[in-house]
Computed example of a mutant assay.
Amino acid sequence: MSTYDKPLPELTEENRPFWDSLRERSTLSLQRCDACGHIRYPVGRVCPECLAPGATWTDVSGGGEVLSRIVFHQVYNQAFADDVPYNVVLVQLDEGPRMFSNVVGIPNDEVQVGLRVRLHCDPVTDEVTIPRFIPEEP
């Protein structure tokens, strides 16, 4: 695998199931509260709905809708200079949580609020696969 010079997430025991599901199975796995069933992201020790501590990792569909979008034309971090312009989107996942990411595979001007998307796994290192999104096929 080629060198990846962009910032990477810190893998911890708490978030490792999230990153492992992407890398090993190309699946988005999120925490489901054992007490109330709320699906949460980002990873947390307690449920933001009921404050219960227990959760089970649950595979979700990876489908969602672009809720908000922006295209960056300025270099804020030198590691992303070759990517400018690039989009950053807030995806409303079908199961409830929202996730910041990118839509890939289409021009930035085609990324619009309301666009249906699905998970696209981008293996950037041997350890880390980044969750990105592609347009859902009609």
Rank of each mutant, 00 (worst) to 15 (best):
F100L: 09
P107M: 10
D122W: 15
T129V: 15
V71S: 07
T56V: 04
R25E: 10
L93D: 00
Q31C: 04
S61V: 06
L93P: 03
S29N: 04
L51F: 10
C47S: 06
W57L: 11
I130E: 08
Y86G: 02
E65I: 06
E24N: 09
S61R: 15
A79M: 05
W19A: 05
Q78R: 11
C50F: 04
V75K: 13
P7C: 05
P123Y: 08
V88R: 11
I134P: 01
F18Q: 01
V88L: 11
G37D: 14
H73V: 02
G62P: 01
Q112R: 13
A35W: 01
S2R: 12
Y4E: 09
A81T: 02
T129Q: 05
V104Q: 05
V117Y: 03
R118K: 14
A55I: 02
V111W: 00
S101E: 02
V113W: 11
S26M: 06
R16Q: 08
S68V: 05
C36E: 13
V43G: 03
S101Q: 01
R40F: 12
S2C: 00
T27K: 15
P138S: 15
V43W: 04
D109Q: 11
G63H: 12
Q92T: 03
V117W: 01
I39G: 02
D109F: 14
R25M: 05
I130Y: 08
N77W: 15
D126Q: 14
E110F: 14
C33N: 01
V88D: 00
V71Y: 07
E14S: 07
C36P: 10
P48G: 05
E14N: 07
L90C: 07
D5A: 09
P53A: 11
A52G: 05
G62F: 06
S26I: 03
V128D: 08
Y86M: 13
L11Q: 07
V46W: 01
P17S: 12
